[in-house]
C-alpha cells in the first residue's frame, strides 16, 4: 500500500467518523422528548454524577490543600501570603475546577459510558431495541448525553468549592494565614461574572465534548471485546486531549484579551 493512498484513506475515515458522530448527536438531540426521558436522564445523572461525587470531592480537597501548601511557600518569600486566598480561588475557578473535573469525568464516567454502550451493541441490545421499534438514540443515547452535560458542570462547581475549603484548611488552619484576609482578599479579587461564570462556561463545553466522545466511541465501537477495550482507551485519550486543547482556546478567548 503506498503512502498517499493510506493518507487519503485515513483522511476519509476520519471525515466519515466525524460525520457519524455528528449524525448520532443530532439524532439524539432532535429525538422527540418524552416524559419518560426525564426519568431516564435522572437515572443517568445518578450514574455519571452521583457516582463520580466521591472522587471529585476527594480530588478537590487534595488539590486545594496542595495548592495552598505550594502557594504559601512561594508567597511567604514576598510577604504576600495574604494573597493565598485569591491564588487558590482563581486557579480553581478558572482552570483546575473545570479541567481536572473533565479529566476525572472522562476517566471515571466517560470510559464507563463507552464500555456500557459498546457492550450493549456487542450483546445486540441496541439492535434488539431497534427491532422493538424503540429508537436507541432516544432511549439510550439522549439521556446519557444530557446527564453528562448537566452533571459535569455541577461536579466542577463542587470541586472548586471543596478545593477552596481545602485551601482554607491548609492555609489558615495549619499554616496560620489570617482567616479574614484569606476570604476578604479573595472577595476583592474574584469576580462573579468573569471568573466564576467563565469557569462554568468552560465546564459546559468540556461536558459536551467529553460526553459526546464517550457516547460516540461506545456507539461506534467494533462489537467485540477487543473493539470495546480499544474504544474505552480512545475515549479517555481523545477526551483528555480535547479538554486540554480546548482549555487553551477558551482561556485565550476569555482571559487572553484584556
Amino acid at each position: 500500500m503506498n503512502y498517499l493512498q493510506s493518507i487519503g484513506q485515513n483522511t476519509l475515515n476520519a471525515l466519515m467518523s466525524f460525520g457519524r458522530a455528528f449524525l448520532m448527536l443530532a439524532g439524539a438531540i432532535l429525538a422527540i422528548p418524552q416524559s419518560k426521558n426525564i426519568r431516564l436522564t435522572v437515572q443517568q445523572i445518578y450514574v455519571v454524577g452521583v457516582q463520580s461525587l466521591l472522587i471529585i470531592i476527594v480530588s478537590g480537597l487534595f488539590i486545594g490543600m496542595v495548592m495552598a501548601l505550594q502557594g504559601y511557600t512561594i508567597l511567604v518569600n514576598y510577604g504576600a501570603e495574604g494573597s493565598l486566598g485569591p491564588m487558590v480561588a482563581l486557579s480553581l475557578l478558572r482552570e483546575l475546577g473545570p479541567v481536572v473535573t473533565a479529566l476525572l469525568f472522562a476517566g471515571r464516567a466517560g470510559s464507563a459510558l463507552t464500555a456500557e454502550i459498546g457492550l450493549m451493541k456487542a450483546t445486540e441490545q441496541l439492535s434488539s431495541l431497534e427491532m422493538m421499534a424503540v429508537d436507541p438514540l432516544r432511549r439510550i443515547i439522549a439521556p446519557r448525553f444530557w446527564a453528562g452535560v448537566i452533571a459535569m458542570p455541577m461536579l466542577a462547581l463542587i470541586f472548586s468549592a471543596i478545593g477552596i475549603l481545602g485551601g482554607h484548611l491548609v492555609g489558615v488552619d495549619w499554616l496560620g494565614v489570617d482567616a479574614g484576609s484569606y476570604w476578604s482578599i479573595m472577595q476583592a479579587t474574584v469576580e462573579w461574572d468573569k471568573d466564576v461564570v467563565n469557569g462554568i462556561i468552560k465546564s459546559f463545553v468540556f461536558a459536551i465534548v467529553v460526553t459526546w466522545i464517550a457516547i460516540f466511541k461506545g456507539y461506534d465501537a467494533i462489537p467485540t471485546s477487543e473493539g470495546i477495550s480499544q474504544a474505552t482507551t480512545q475515549t479517555v485519550v481523545y477526551s483528555s486531549l480535547a479538554v486540554l486543547g480546548l482549555d487553551f482556546v477558551l482561556t485565550a478567548l476569555m482571559f487572553g484579551i484584556n
Binding site: 480561588a89 462547581l157 468549592a161 471543596i162 475549603l165 476570604w183 472577595q187 469576580e191 462573579w192 466564576v196
Partner: peptide, 12 residues
C-alpha cells in the same frame, strides 16, 4: 457550592 462561591468567594 454555588452559594459558597457567590457569597463567600466572589461576594456577589
Amino acid at each position: 457550592a454555588v452559594l459558597l462561591l457567590a457569597l463567600k468567594v466572589a461576594n456577589q
